[in-house]
């Protein structure tokens, strides 16, 4: 799946002037007095892979939830691709704008096959609306959907499991499937919550390669929450460390992972 924008990306990476695709400005979210996200201002460049690290409770997943609309921010702004209103939008509208996400607890529709899960994610189908469902020409529509779904399944590498029930896939394959669903949705920005946690090393390697391919070939922007520092080192262009709701460090992977502040945060 070659992307026409590949050349543009190469150009912009070399000139180091990349568009900011996601920006949060002074984002605040608190629960009953605890400040889960405490003034987070972050700018993510298009076509980069950024890892978000930090101890449990640092606010990483909460940040994801606020950006994707599942939680409403108490203060601050989220801007996606120039669109300001996204902190007030419903999650499904944000998803349609081009932000896809996975969940820490691996949400999928387990009783559907891998193929059906990806088909579900495909947007704007004729059968989505009642009239279309009743009167559309089903067979043609069905073939088109399945072909597109197969493409994505093949791209991420679980093409041969297309007809396996999601609950019967291995944990790593399920994680790949969730990424495939984001891609089928047409997401330009992927928020991945612990994509390699709990996955066996061989499959984890495959997932990381996929992330790199998505950045290089598809010009996707990826924000990853991860605890696995090897993985973070392997894929990230940039690492942002959080603790107690705030960003405590932000820069190249090597310098962040060796920074004293970060190590201290983890040890507390």
């Amino acid at each position: 799946m070659k992307n026409k924008d590949q050349n543009n990306i190469k150009l912009s990476r070399s000139t180091k002037k990349r568009k900011i695709i996601l920006e949060t400005k002074c984002l605040h979210k608190h629960f009953d007095g605890t400040k889960a996200v405490n003034g987070v201002s972050l700018a993510i460049e298009e076509g980069s892979i950024v890892s978000l690290i930090g101890p449990n409770g640092a606010g990483k997943t909460t940040l994801f939830n606020v950006v994707t609309g599942f939680l409403s921010a108490d203060a601050g702004k989220v801007v996606f691709d120039g669109i300001h209103m996204i902190s007030k939008m419903a999650p499904y509208n944000i998803a349609r704008l081009g932000i896809g996400r996975t969940f820490q607890d691996l949400r999928l529709i387990r009783r559907l096959t891998a193929m059906e899960n990806v088909c579900l994610a495909l947007p704007n189908q004729k059968g989505d609306k009642v009239i279309g469902a009743l009167f559309g020409r089903r067979n043609r529509e069905e073939k088109r959907r399945r072909a597109e779904a197969m493409n994505w399944l093949g791209y991420i590498g679980i093409g041969e499991e297309a007809n396996t029930l999601a609950e019967e896939l291995s944990y790593g394959q399920q994680k790949l499937l969730t990424v495939a669903c984001c891609l089928a949705l047409g997401s330009r920005l992927l928020l991945l919550d612990e994509p390699v946690a709990g996955v066996n090393p061989a499959l984890a390697e495959k997932i990381l390669e996929l992330l790199l391919r998505l950045r290089n070939e598809e010009a996707k922007t990826i924000l990853v929450v991860e605890h696995n520092m090897d993985a973070v080192m392997k894929v990230s262009d940039r690492v942002v460390a959080m603790d107690e709701g705030q960003i405590i460090a932000d820069g190249k992977p090597k310098q962040i992972l060796e920074s004293a502040a970060v190590i201290e945060a983890y040890l507390e």
């Binding site: 999650p91 499904y92 998803a95 996400r101 969940f103 949400r107």
Partner: peptide, 8 residues
């Protein structure tokens, strides 16, 4: 919730 995240 997952279905919402799929843009529905």
């Amino acid at each position: 919730i997952y279905t919402q995240a799929l843009g529905k």
